[in-house]
């Protein structure tokens, strides 16, 4: 038979259920890489943490949690056929996500030039021993997920405003939404691990 179709496995319902299971397994897999970074943090930092400014990361955390709220709102909006709220909330999510990403890049990392060499580090540099290494490792991997989430949200927004999704068929929105919440969930653990737990150790230069 050159070509054929599989009626049982072609229905949107079946595919959505399967996709959802696959997506959650992907999350389970990612738990291990983020968990590995947390293990590295506690293994290398122990009961200490680098002494960093506290206000910017708090503001960024608020931005990320707010974006998660708007993402939920967007998903609920399309599930109940409220298109205007849907597209607006998606855009707000993307904006807040971008604020988080740019905030990490320019406030938390910062770019400076020393002796003609491009180096990262307003407050802390990647080369600052284990403190720099773990800090940049954790924020970097998380930021990578944030920026891919923002791209996904923009794609979904673009399709959404052209009427691609409906209350009955919006797996694309749901997938982006749970991915975004997952990124948020990871930050819920990373934020205290980086900024709150342990005694602050200063830069003894």
């Amino acid at each position: 038979m050159a070509a054929g179709t599989d009626t049982l496995h072609d229905s949107y319902q079946w595919q959505t259920r399967t996709n959802r299971l696959g997506f959650w397994l992907f999350f389970l897999s990612e738990v291990f890489i983020f968990g590995g970074l947390l293990v590295a943090r506690f293994f290398l930092w122990g009961g200490t943490r680098p002494d960093l400014p506290q206000i910017p990361p708090l503001l960024l955390t608020v931005a990320l949690l707010l974006s998660s709220f708007f993402m939920f709102r967007a998903e609920m909006a399309i599930a109940t056929d409220d298109r205007k709220t849907f597209t607006r909330s998606l855009l707000l999510t993307a904006v807040l996500g971008s604020i988080f990403f740019l905030g990490v890049m320019f406030v938390e990392w910062g770019f400076t030039v020393e002796n003609g060499q491009l180096v990262l580090g307003n407050h802390i540099k990647p080369t600052d021993g284990v403190y720099g290494a773990v800090f940049y490792g954790m924020t970097g991997l998380h930021a990578l997920h944030v920026i891919s989430g923002v791209i996904g949200i923009l794609l979904v927004w673009n399709l959404g405003r052209k009427g691609h999704f409906s209350a009955e068929r919006h797996w694309g929105v749901e997938a982006t939404a749970i991915y975004w919440h997952y990124v948020d969930l990871v930050w819920v653990f990373f934020y205290p691990a980086l900024y709150l737990i342990g005694t602050a150790v200063g830069h003894g230069h």
């Binding site: 680098p50 080369t127 021993g129 403190y131 290494a133 200063g202 003894g204």
Partner: peptide, 22 residues
């Protein structure tokens, strides 16, 4: 990024951001 670079003093003596990798 010195995850595995012990560098400097051992970690519990660290009062600055040098070394400490393992």
């Amino acid at each position: 990024m010195g995850f595995f670079d012990p560098g400097g003093p051992v970690w519990y003596e660290v009062d600055k951001w040098v070394g400490g990798g393992n």
